[in-house]
Design a protein around this nucleic acid. Structure first.
Length: 893
RNA sequence: GGGAGUUUAGCUCAGCUGGUUCAGAGCAUCUGCCUUACAAGCAGAGGGUCACUGGUUCGAACCCAGUAACUCCCA
């Protein structure tokens, strides 16, 4: 039979994925085994698979597959997130294309369209993940708006409200005056804009000005001025001013402490307040405080109990509270007010000024900070235990550097605005009464009961109640995810939640450490009394090789499915992991996938080689050493890989595996034992080699599931039962390691490299056999490696000598000398130069070692093992030096 | 403005408690090979003032201080 020259992923991937599905290998039900659980960070229903998902899910799949192969009951729960803002935008856009405006629809009508959209597109990512090989338990697929999950959201809201953790309050939102809606911070695009900075004079209220003390009068240059000057980019908001703020440390303005000033044009009196918040060297050092129209001013206003005067309508025009320019658009008002100020003599000057302005992603309108009534969830109380989990190490963040960021955030946590002015999502369970009061209840019937109780009015009917139109933030459902996917709210003692919760690992991006991870920990503590996971592996952002974030608009992101098409799922998985240190961004380049594909091909070809051998059981085994060596090397690597996994160093675990397979197994072991062309192999070697290969498939499987499953079922490994699959094979245990053998083979490798180097430099064909003799000073018994050296170095005779072979090319391995006589004479000048160079290096080395050993403080302070090491270095260097010096003498240099 | 992080070979990164292996790996590069598993390969080689400046120490890529550049988070 003929085997293809390269590995062909397309012929295996779909086949084995459906085989795994068919035989329920991804399925998990609670049993007596130790569970290993991951809940997927649910991708948005609006999304398509991007490189970030590829990375994130490759990592999860590697972890899950490895756990499965360690005998654990592995459960990876998949699902999607309803992403209220993004999805609603998509649905609105879809409706617009059909000529339907959201305004013309009732809420239920709109939701029908939204569900229709979700059913059609919501599962795309999950289907794409299957191409990657994701071994999720698909029967457990959840959606954040599934009935039980939504019910959990509502119940949670009510629970927290009753506990006093949810309240209504005023908050500054990003208002889009064109779309007449609040938008989230993520939907605001900041741009640097050329603007004007207007310097405006405010007259100081004169009666108070007169009581200036003489000292103050002398202190200030402004002493005789009856006004102060502020600088602002928004002169149209002066009518909403509530105060002027100066820094108490600002010596220029000491005379203003406790004074009041008039707002120009409208002559309303406002106080001068003191706060260190004001930057003295920006503008004039006098800040106009406009609580209704600036977030920082709002907070300042809260602190100083200032009134909030909102002079803008929802569409961005001035309202009657502005007193002047009522009805004008904010930008027209800005121009007109500049003229008015000028005419009134209140405009000191105008300067050009650059600053960041927010624009609405949807309408491109300039965002207006606007105060509005929102629902909030108190965070302070919940943040405390959530911080403790991480500080105690009960929840480990990987890498640890994120603990600092996490702590900083949790110690300065702000209340969470959980309402969104949207329809798609869980509607807030609040009903308003005619008198403006509200009740919180699970449904309208209960709301009515509550309302009647509250008002003592049994005449109230459901018609008197109006439900809050807003929905809760999407994170308010995803923070429950690790509990709600196991139905842990409605049925808090069910078998699943008791078995799978807390989950083991969470793999996600650092940018949602606060939005999501921290809040899940809070919810876990609040509702289960336990953190939702033990380890949080934070991946980096996938960037292109220029370091730019991959994005649709830049067009710098490869299509993951095309990558899989081109390099195979295994190749792409390897490619992703090769460039993904935990927590650091990764500079992705397709060349990594190419490396992955090449690796798959290398494994395929090793298989082809072994597959082609014919066994002759009458032959003796000439490869005892090689077999024992690889066994030791394999066990050693197994330990390194395990260690890397324990520390979540996945790319290093992969690299250790890569080198074990490519270098140790293929380049060294197989070359050592490979029979001559068309010659049969002995049974012992053959069986050992096949067994090693099978073990290699196991350790490769989490990284390269398709290729390994394909090879696993080859007849090379004998008959397999239907359920005897690589995916559920148990990883080998670490066996004996013969360290002496490992060290000696490393020396053998050095010898072979030296021989090859000599061939290369002397232009000797690998086909021409060479004679090698050696003088052993180290005590290594080279005779047992004779066969290997002879085979890999093409050495015809290998003899031990007591005296140096004069006139031969020579080299050192450790302190042992090797000689290869050549027909040509060696160039004494070049040889002397080489030896002298070596000698100089050794002398320098020895000098530094001796300096340490001769240093009293070193001898007194260094640990005994360190001194031991230095002594050995000295002895080695001296032994080598002696040999080199003898060579120099012999050559009469 | 506040906080955090990064800086080691052309690229992406390791380097754990300061001490053979401390200057490493993979890729890329260069040289020679179509040697019957693999040219998506084999063999060999070159490549670095560990960002900079000081300090601590017998000893610093590693600890401390400062400087610079870049990145992220919060505002």
């Amino acid at each position: 039979m003929s085997i293809s020259k390269t590995y062909l992923p397309k012929e295996t991937e779909d086949k084995w994925y459906s085989y795994w599905l068919k035989h329920n290998f991804f399925k998990s039900v609670p049993d007596e085994r130790e569970p290993y659980t991951i809940v997927i960070p649910p991708p948005n229903v609006t999304g398509v698979l991007h490189m970030g998902h590829m990375l994130n899910n490759t990592i999860q799949d590697v972890l899950v597959r490895r756990a499965r192969m360690k005998g654990k009951n592995a459960c990876w729960v998949p699902g999607t997130d309803h992403a209220s803002i993004a999805t609603e935008a998509k649905v609105v856009a879809m409706l617009k294309e059909r000529g339907i405006s959201k305004k013309d629809l009732t809420r239920p009508e709109f939701l029908t369209y939204a569900w229709e959209w979700k059913e059609k597109y919501g599962g795309i990512i999950l289907d794409q993940l299957k191409k990657l090989g994701a071994s999720c338990d698909w029967d457990r697929t959840k959606f954040t708006m599934d009935e039980e999950l939504s019910e959990a959201v509502i119940d949670t809201f009510i629970h927290l409200y009753k506990k006093g953790l949810i309240y209504r309050g005023v908050r500054m939102v990003n208002w889009d005056p064109q779309g007449k809606t609040a938008v989230s911070d993520e939907e605001v695009i900041r741009k640097e804009i050329n603007q004007k900075l207007y310097y405006i004079n405010y007259e100081v209220v004169s009666s108070e000005f007169l009581v200036l003390s003489e000292k103050e009068t002398q202190n200030s240059k402004l002493k005789t001025q009856s006004y102060l000057t502020i600088a602002t980019t928004r002169p149209e908001t002066i009518m909403a001013d509530a105060a002027i703020c100066i820094n108490p440390n600002d010596e220029r303005y000491v005379h203003l402490h406790g004074k009041r000033v008039f707002i120009p044009l409208i002559n309303r009196e406002i106080p001068v307040i003191l706060d260190e918040y004001v930057t003295m060297d920006f503008g004039t050092g006098c800040l106009k405080v406009t609580p209704a129209h600036d977030l920082n001013d709002y907070e300042l206003g809260q602190k100083h109990n200032l009134p909030v005067i909102d002079i803008l309508n929802d569409d961005g025009t001035l309202n009657e509270k502005a007193q002047i320019l009522v009805g004008e658009d904010r930008f027209i008002a800005r121009k007109k007010i500049a003229v008015l100020l000028e005419e009134a003599g209140a405009l000191a000057k105008v300067e050009d000024y650059k600053s960041q302005i927010g624009f609405s992603e949807r309408t491109d309108a300039v965002i207006e900070p606007k105060l509005s009534m929102q629902w909030f969830c108190k965070m302070g109380e919940m943040a405390k235990p959530a911080l403790e989990y991480v500080l105690d190490g009960e929840v480990k963040l990987i890498p640890e550097k994120f603990i600092n960021t996490y702590r900083h955030w949790m110690e300065n946590v702000r209340d969470w605005n959980i309402s969104r002015q949207l329809w798609w999502g869980q509607q807030i369970p609040a009903w308003y009464l005619p008198n403006g009061e509200f009740v919180i209840a699970k449904n309208i019937e209960e709301a009515l009961k509550e309302a009647q109780l509250k008002t003592q009015n049994s005449q109230l009917t459901t018609a008197d109640l109006t439900r809050d139109p807003d929905v809760v933030d999407t994170w308010f459902s995803s923070w429950l995810w690790p509990i709600s996917v196991f139905d842990g709210f409605k049925d808090p003692n069910n078998a699943d939640i008791n078995y799978y919760y807390p989950t083991n690992d969470l793999v996600t991006a650092p940018e949602i450490l606060f939005f999501w991870v921290a809040r899940m920990i809070m919810a876990g503590h609040e509702f289960r009394g336990a953190a939702p996971f033990k380890n949080v592996y934070l991946t980096g952002i996938v960037r292109d090789k220029l370091g730019r974030k991959m994005s649709k608009s830049l067009g710098n992101s490869p299509d993951p499915l095309e990558l899989i098409e081109q390099y195979g799922a295994d190749g792409v998985r390897v490619g992703m992991l090769l460039c993904s240190p935990a927590g650091n961004d990764l500079m992705f380049d397709v060349s990594y996938c190419e490396q992955g594909r090449n690796f798959a091909n290398k494994i395929w070809n090793a298989f082809k080689l072994i597959k082609g051998w014919e066994v002759d059981s009458s032959l003796a085994n000439p490869n005892e050493i090689a077999i024992e060596w690889f066994g030791s090397r394999f066990n050693q690597a197994l330990g390194e890989i395990e260690d890397n996994f324990t520390q979540y160093r996945l790319s290093e675990a992969l690299m250790a595996t890569y080198k074990l397979v490519w270098d140790d197994y293929c380049a060294w072991y197989l070359e050592m034992i490979k029979p001559a062309y068309q010659q049969p192999i002995d049974a012992v070697t053959y069986n050992a080699t096949v067994a090693y290969f099978e073990n290699i498939l196991k350790i490769l499987h989490p990284f390269m599931p398709f290729l390994t499953e394909e090879l696993w079922h080859d007849e090379l490994f004998g008959e397999r039962d239907t359920l005897d699959c690589c995916i559920v094979a148990q990883l080998p245990n670490i066996g004996e390691i013969n360290t002496q053998l490992l060290t000696e083979v490393e020396v053998v490798k050095v010898i072979l490299t030296q021989i090859r180097n000599i061939r290369q430099t002397k232009q000797i064909s690998p086909k021409d056999a060479l004679e090698l003799s050696y003088k052993s000073n180290s005590g290594i018994n080279y005779q047992q490696y004779q066969a290997i050296i002879a085979k890999l170095g093409n050495i015809s005779t290998f003899t031990a000598v007591n005296d140096k072979v004069l006139g031969a090319v020579n080299f050192l391995a450790l302190t042992d000398e090797f000689f290869i006589p050549l027909n040509e004479n060696i160039d004494p000048v070049a040889e002397c130069a080489r030896l002298n160079k070596e000698k100089d290096y050794l002398l320098g080395f020895l000098k530094s070692v001796n300096a340490k050993l001769g240093n009293e403080r070193f001898m007194a302070n260094a640990k005994p093992e360190v001194i031991e090491i230095e002594l050995r270095k000295k002895a080695d260097a001296e032994a080598k030096l002696q040999i080199i010096e003898q060579n120099l003498v012999d050559l009469a240099c």
